[in-house]
Amino acid sequence: MHADRSAVLAGVAAEPGVPKPDPILVADSLQRSFGGIRAVDVDHLEVQRGIITGLIGPNGAGKTTFFNLLTGFDQPDNGKKSFNGDSIDGKSPHALARQGMVRTFQLTKSLTKLSVIDNMKLGARHQSGESLWRSMLRPLWGSEEKAIEQRADELLVRFKLDHMREEYAGTLSGGQRKLLEMARALMSEPDLIMLDEPMAGVNPALTQSLLEHVKDLAGQGISVVFVEHDMDVVRDISDWVVVMAEGAVIAEGPHDSITANSDVIDAYLGTHHDAPLDVEVDLDWKEADG
């Protein structure tokens, strides 16, 4: 949690669907069912600009489906959504990405037969060399490509992937792929980045540096929404936490208000429970780091 950033939401009540001063993303009555399962049924949710929002919830709560709806990878049965104040209903994923909303996937999508550096360069938005007609004439895009490559190399260093630069992405380990996917998404210089379990499978020592990257993003004014099961991570970096269960947003607020919330504890543990929320047993990275 970051003092300056959380201050924006200081006066905002910790209740589901509460309006925020400057929302970048708004979902309204968003619903999606698969057969009999109502995977997502969100009355109202606003994501504040410029902060890190953690999205938590038990397995099957509908977090990934909610991500899919927001990013255009799945279409809601009904409901409305807007991004940066504009309606984004029915927009395709690539159109949203070009508007500045980029996502990563829970099951990593590394482009295995592209080199790591090519994976990175792919992420850059609005490349003139991607036009069929210009593509064959290198002088038309060569200098742009150089600038992109330089930015890619900087990110690779930050993500400790620079030694793998020329390797096929398919040769990376699972954790490295997570890193690559996140770094690649950053290449697009998004306004909003949506990370679906970015730390899953990443070595605890690296988790710490990844967390720093995520905090950096918010420092640069990029809004972040991320799904995470590790409550230590959530506590450490979220300015605001949203809790989903059975498709609905059942609570939102600063981290401390969430862990004290009995609805949340019910959702995780199924029954009333007095113990403080400690969802998963995980490696303690603080020790691993020291």
Partner: peptide, 27 residues
Amino acid sequence: LLIRSPWGRVVKAIREDELAARALGKN
């Protein structure tokens, strides 16, 4: 010429994983 260009990079990316390419803004 096409394949060594950014156009070729996108096309190969689509071959590898279309959803990933779309998530990065490629039509």
